[in-house]
Design a binder for these strands. Structure first.
Lengths: 237, 237
DNA sequence: CGCAAGATTGAAGTACGTCAATTCCAGTGG
DNA sequence: CCACTGGAATTGACGTACTTCAATCTTGCG
């Protein structure tokens, strides 16, 4: 069942049939969730770890001013919150962006896996370290890159991450975000996000068809964005 | 020997004498390192995990433009790079900021601890999750807060983190950074950092004596910065 | 005591934000 | 099939928080 997770962890270890069985048995409780619904809220201490099987979700915080800051995107194969096993409470919220299929894994099942299988434990830990690496790169982006490179860099990342779980077609992928949400991610206003997206399109670096982004020349976009994929720690490439 | 580490992990688990012995025996190789020297460079695959015993270090990346982005500060009790055990290579560099005493722990010793002691393993994992939580908060700060609150928020955090390892005196702590380095952290120019620091001082929110920051009224500074310490996941308060 | 790095200040430029209006488009009901 | 609707995208005008450049002042340190 959790093919995207297999595909993701497979970048780090060769999964055995036994590993697959263990993961499959843990992800029996699958639920469909509509777009833009909260999965966990800041302050929660949930009893489940959530695994995205289909669709996009995002981590976010709301500032006292009402401003929303989006901190990460979660796509198929991503675990939302293994933190929960160790930290007392969520320090941020998670919501779906598109309609999603999500596996609910009880904490006890996670603990069982961690005790039964050292290689899987390491693979799961590896996944959280990659999340951390992505956060570092976003911090660089938001703090030090101008708007156009900021967005270009983000699109490079999401193309490669989508590709790693088999969600791309000819260097195009589905981006289920409004421009306002993209702005809340990049630390930009919706208006400026719109203008910047227009520039990238005019420069021929990207093309947009509805909610689908196509990157005609990935080399050129990477060069423009000063994008180095090393922080994604992907096996292939 | 590694008192600050005891103190840090002690926030998460009660350390037994056995835990302490295990950690002490791993941290036998201690070296003094001068200020502003690199410990690990991006691309490295070091054989050692580094533990800060005294002084400050920082994670950073250099952009093609030469711009430096500082991504995290490491103070006594912080492990620099457990990543190394799992990720292929460093995706960022680490350098000292002040003179430091650093314990070099060989990878095999880390592995030994991880295999021998589940509780310590969880505590170490917990520490990396806190690092991740801090990164998320920095992303909020850099992306969505104005310069004055950005710096105020950072100072709140560093006071609490310093306090947790016993490095504060009357709500004051040593901040071994130049204003340029602080700017590279907050995504601000050195000039604007200077002016903003001046404003905070004029407002009576902080006082600066050389490289020492004093916070006369922590409640007031927290309120100004909209600082909520939940993301630090500290036990006490 | 002298020097270099860091801190401070002023003046001018710019990349971004805000406000507000208009256009586009997918979904809905008639 | 078309008119209606509300959210999202787009565009223009204008304001501002920040940057950059450059000069001067201060401080720590050999």
């Amino acid at each position: 069942m959790p093919e995207p997770l297999f595909r993701k962890l497979g970048q780090f270890i060769e999964l055995t049939d036994d590993d697959r069985r263990l993961l499959s048995s843990a992800t029996h409780d699958v639920r469909a969730i509509g777009a833009r619904e909260d999965i966990i809220l800041e302050g929660d201490r949930p009893d489940f770890v959530h695994l995205i099987l289909e669709g996009w979700a995002g981590r976010y915080k709301i500032l006292p001013s009402g401003q929303r800051s989006i901190l990460a995107y979660l796509i198929p194969g991503d675990l939302c919150d293994i933190h929960v096993a160790l930290l007392k409470e969520m320090d941020h919220s998670i919501a779906t962006l598109s309609t999603c299929r999500i596996a609910f894994i009880s904490r006890s099942e996670i603990v069982k896996i961690l005790e039964a299988n050292t290689r899987l434990t390491h693979a799961l830990w590896w996944a959280t370290l990659v999340d951390e690496a992505i956060l570092r790169e976003w911090l660089v982006t938001v703090g030090h890159r101008p708007a156009d490179k900021r967005i270009a860099h983000f699109l490079c990342e999401m193309l490669l991450r989508s590709k790693a779980v088999g969600l791309t077609v000819d260097n195009s992928f589905h981006l289920p975000l409004t421009q306002e949400e993209l702005g809340d991610t990049m630390g930009l206003s919706a208006v400026h996000t719109n203008r910047t997206l227009g520039e990238l399109r005019n420069a021929g670096l990207i093309s947009i068809d509805g909610r689908r982004i196509a990157i005609p020349d990935m080399g050129r976009l990477q060069e423009f964005a000063e994008f180095n994929p090393n922080y994604l720690h992907q096996k292939d490439k």
